[in-house]
Amino acid sequence: MRETRTVRCETLYARPQCLIDVPTHYCAGCGHGTVHRVLAEIIDELGIRERTIGIAPVGCAVLAYDYIDIDWSEAAHGRPPAVATGLKRVRPDRIVFTYQGDGDLASIGMAETIHAANRGENITVIFINNAVYGMTQGQMAPTTLVGQKTKTTPRGRDPEQDGYPIRVCELLSGFDRVRFLARATVTSAARVRRMKKLLKKAFRYQIERVGFSLVEVLSPCPTYWRMTPVECCEFIEETMVKSFPLGVIKDVSAGEDGDR
């Protein structure tokens, strides 16, 4: 008789269960794919796939519902926080998040963003800030940096004409019913792990009914920044974070009234 030996294999890294196994439509080096994966991991880890409803935006992530295997709703451009309000109010035990870009959230949908935040809707907002309009081929965003060249700022963004980039987290931090605001990025494995930690906390707050949470992700757009993916990451780390500092901007768990 031959001796058999059992070898124990451990899965260290795999596709998250709720991340659908299809190629995405995103450009090479885009940040959306990374955030999608992290989002799918969080949904799996928190065990909320069967009660989570996502609101997809108008913009590059319009097809987000093709990649994560949960119930999804579309929303008109800028209106995800309103759609999420309607959904969450009638299904308060479901987990509702919006996934929005900078034009959707901070330009055409600014009113919906501010008022959903001010009402303290118990939802999670994922805000992808790449400082440019990708889907419409590279025009100025409300978060475009001063001097940054886009299709509609061919000589660079001029504050005299276009104002300064809007810092959404800082803007919302003054509202009493906003509970969690953080800014992260996807430029390195460490940064991605940090982003996941913050986003997971935001979802946990929703599960615990703490209230409104938003995580902003500084995300590369190689196509319209006209840079390689590596250059994009360097640009975020060296330049973009100066306008949009990383970290937790506000964190007030239920019952507390000071920053933690």
Binding site: S73, A75, V83, T85, G86, V90, R91, R94, E112, H115
Partner: peptide, 15 residues
Amino acid sequence: SELAAINMLYGASAA
């Protein structure tokens, strides 16, 4: 706004 109201309906109706 009316815009927000009709889009809240979109969410509630979707639910």
